[in-house]
């Protein structure tokens, strides 16, 4: 069952990566739970990210630089690299799987229509942002995101998420995670510009690109190259890390289970 299902998901992932290149028709006149109109941003652009997993070494430089750039509270992350130890049951070979996660800036972001005060919205260039001066902190968007890309920022008490570093993009800089990636695994750009690096790479590797959880119908705009389709949806993995607390219940660190 699992193999069949996962193969199907893998195929869907490829299909959806293709479909995402076609701009969706206007979504104005929104009914209940439809996408409201986009606002702000450059409508001639559509930002997307391609993550070349073949180049990712799991160093977490992106995690750290994002944390510093965007001042997320300790323990909350706008991006992080999930790491899995993978064992081939037949041969006993062991490998490590790196999976950088961030907001997918979906074409149909489920977090946007749920917002009851229009605080979270999608810009014309596809970037999903939160106006944290309007946000009431109801956390409905946190629940609606299938990728756990959102969290309630404990300092601002409002919804927080990756913005593709829109404040940097808007002045011609690269996002912190892209700038700091030692392997050059993260490529951001405008997929409406056929000459951009991301457009060229997406054309070249079109059939090998995958997105996360395609079955959710969100049409993510973070594309993975060199992805194992078994990690496209929630991986069938054993949780292995546990936090360690002292006698007063204060967190003192992490350790691996069984070590």
């Amino acid at each position: 069952m699992d193999f069949a299902r996962r193969t199907l998901l893998g195929q869907m992932a490829r299909l959806t990566a293709g479909a995402a290149l076609v701009p969706l028709s206007s979504l104005a006149n929104a009914g209940i739970n439809d996408q409201p109109p986009r606002r702000e941003g450059d409508s001639s652009k559509r930002y997307a990210m391609l993550i070349d997993l073949r180049q990712c070494i799991g160093c977490q430089a992106c995690t750290v630089s994002c944390h510093i750039e965007n001042e997320a509270p300790l323990g909350s992350f706008r991006t992080i690299v999930s790491q899995y130890e993978v064992e081939n049951e037949d041969t006993g070979d062991i490998a490590t799987m790196m999976l950088p996660r961030l907001c997918n800036h979906c074409e149909a972001p489920p977090c946007v229509p749920v917002c009851p005060v229009q605080a979270t919205y999608q810009r014309e260039d596809g970037i999903v942002v939160v106006n944290n001066e309007a946000c009431v902190g109801c956390a409905y968007c946190v629940q609606a995101c299938p990728y756990d890309a959102r969290f309630i920022n404990e300092k601002t008490q409002t919804a927080d998420k990756c913005t593709f570093c829109a404040h940097r993009l808007d002045v011609g800089l690269l996002p912190a995670c892209v700038e700091s990636c030692v392997g050059g695994a993260r490529i951001i750009g405008d997929i409406r510009d056929p000459d951009s690096q991301i457009s060229r790479m997406m054309a070249e590797h079109h059939d090998d690109l995958m997105v996360l959880k395609p079955e959710q119908g969100t049409s993510p705009h973070v594309f993975y190259l060199g992805m194992d389709e078994r990690f496209v949806t929630r991986p069938l993995a054993d949780p292995a890390i546990w936090d360690v607390r002292d006698n007063e219940g204060k967190e003192i660190g992490y350790e691996f289970a069984g070590h």
């Binding site: 209940i32 739970n33 229509p113 229009q118 605080a119 009431v136 902190g137 309630i152």
Partner: peptide, 26 residues
């Protein structure tokens, strides 16, 4: 009380979002 910003409850009425069930509820 479940809002993380309860003092901003008036935002529900200042910028309603008729496509959101929560806004309809408000």
């Amino acid at each position: 009380a479940d809002l993380h910003q309860p003092a901003r409850f008036w935002h529900f009425y200042a910028s309603p979002a008729p496509w959101s069930w929560m806004s309809i509820g408000a």
